[in-house]
């Protein structure tokens, strides 16, 4: 079989215009990591179950392992690399550190991207709402409680700011 023709993609990643060439069957998580060297986005399960690959696509929280890279054409992608401000962690990141909400860290970029998305649409979530929202972010290390506490603390920080 002949090699599939590569697709030229023009997109925006964390506010910056980016271009890359991808295979038709390449997924966005792979293109972010291997074409654009944005390795903050992790790949765990690659089938939509673990949330390590969470990014925003045109503002919607998605698993980038279940998005074709070519779908990003003309759309805006936000990854973990765009979360921290200049020299300053986002409150979700800061509180994950304070509360030891990470150990190995493989789930953390996805947790941060997902939690930030929640707090932007719901600044004062209940514990249950946080747990429900993050049900698609699997963590093998922390036992979740510390993550939930950190996200609730970050929400409080953001409301006070």
């Amino acid at each position: 079989m002949s090699q599939p023709r590569k697709i030229h993609v023009s997109t925006t990643v964390n506010g910056e215009p980016k271009e890359f060439l991808c295979e038709p069957g390449q997924v966005l998580s792979d293109a972010l990591r291997n074409n654009l060297a944005l390795t903050g986005t992790k790949e765990g399960c690659t089938t939509g179950d673990c949330g390590a690959c969470s990014v925003l696509l045109d503002g919607a929280l998605v698993c980038s392992c279940l998005v074709l890279a070519a779908e990003a054409e003309g759309r805006a992608v936000q990854t973990i690399e765009g979360v921290a401000g200049e020299g300053r962690l986002h409150p979700v990141q800061q509180q994950l550190l304070e509360h030891a909400g990470l150990q190995c860290g493989i789930c953390t970029p996805g947790v941060v991207v997902a939690a930030k998305a929640l707090l932007e649409q719901n600044p004062d979530p209940s514990e249950e709402e946080v747990r429900f929202w993050l049900a698609g972010n699997l963590c093998r290390c922390t036992g979740y409680d510390k993550i939930i506490v950190a996200v609730l603390a970050a929400a409080a920080d953001m409301r006070a700011a």
């Binding site: 939509g48 998605v62 698993c63 997902a114 929640l118 993050l134 972010n137």
Partner: peptide
């Protein structure tokens, strides 16, 4: 259906 991430799609 699925998680918040799945709901995005």
């Amino acid at each position: 259906i699925g998680s918040s991430q799945v709901q995005g799609r």
